[in-house]
């Protein structure tokens, strides 16, 4: 894959030295903080671009556009949710490695499920989910919490007050939990040959089936909210 190539610091250095005052409108791999608010987000995927109407295109033509990031690809197989997961799995900026690990996990899901599929008889085949991407999306959907608790101080006591979550925050928590639970492992001295990718694969499979550690976490949070619903009105007022 060419991603490794693109992440070479020397290559990055050359590009960032170009400066953006005299450049054409599209820059590569620059620090996003440099762009003033007049710059708009890029429409990087052909599918999205084809959906734009002519007026929107006209408007975009006269605007400065930020360059696409390394995670924004025009590939047919590009999936923004998956790219987000890559960011959660990534440690110390090693994006290529994180991507590799997630691909491994998907492959492991597929190996297990496809073999089951081929061994099953025709009627049972329909019930076996085999598409790892679908399994991942389902797992993400199932892991999203509806409520969470926030600390509110009243009369010197800190109460856990249940609050509703918006979709962005809920999705963020789902990603975080999925990766967190997959990182839990036995002490290294008892290494059983089960790697992060194995645990992630298992966690995704479980979560898509509404079982497993991540779902348990979500249920426990919901229970906590239920227990503290008496304090819900502390959310407002003083």
């Amino acid at each position: 894959m060419s991603f490794k190539f693109l992440q070479r610091p020397s290559f990055l250095h050359n590009v960032s030295c170009l400066g953006f005052t005299n450049c054409p409108r599209v820059y590569q791999f620059m620090n996003y903080g440099r762009f003033p608010p007049s710059f708009v987000e890029p429409v990087y995927h052909p599918d999205k671009f084809n959906k734009l109407n002519s007026e929107e295109v006209k408007e975009l033509m006269h605007k400065n556009v930020k360059p696409p990031t390394t995670s924004q690809s025009a590939s047919v197989f590009h999936d923004p949710h998956l790219e987000k997961l890559v960011n959660f799995v990534m440690k110390s900026g090693r994006k290529a490695k994180a991507r590799e690990i997630i691909k491994e996990a998907f492959e492991k899901i597929k190996r297990a499920q496809v073999r089951k599929y081929h061994l099953a008889n025709d009627s049972a085949k329909l019930k076996i989910p085999t598409n790892p991407l679908e399994i991942f999306h389902q797992a993400l959907q199932n892991c999203k919490p509806v409520l969470t608790v926030t600390p509110v101080k009243r009369g010197g006591v800190v109460y856990k007050v249940p609050v509703a979550l918006d979709d962005t925050k809920a999705t963020r928590m789902a990603y975080k939990w999925l990766v967190e639970t997959s990182r839990e492992h036995e002490p290294r001295r008892n290494h059983t040959g089960v790697f992060f990718s194995d645990r992630l694969a298992k966690e995704l499979m479980d979560a898509s089936d509404n079982t497993g550690k991540t779902i348990k976490k979500k249920v426990e949070l919901h229970k906590l909210c239920e227990a503290n619903k008496a304090y819900a009105h502390y959310r407002w007022g003083k």
Partner: peptide, 11 residues
């Protein structure tokens, strides 16, 4: 054989 399942790969 279901080694490729991404709907994009069918196009």
């Amino acid at each position: 054989r279901r080694w490729i399942q991404h709907p994009g790969a069918q196009s």
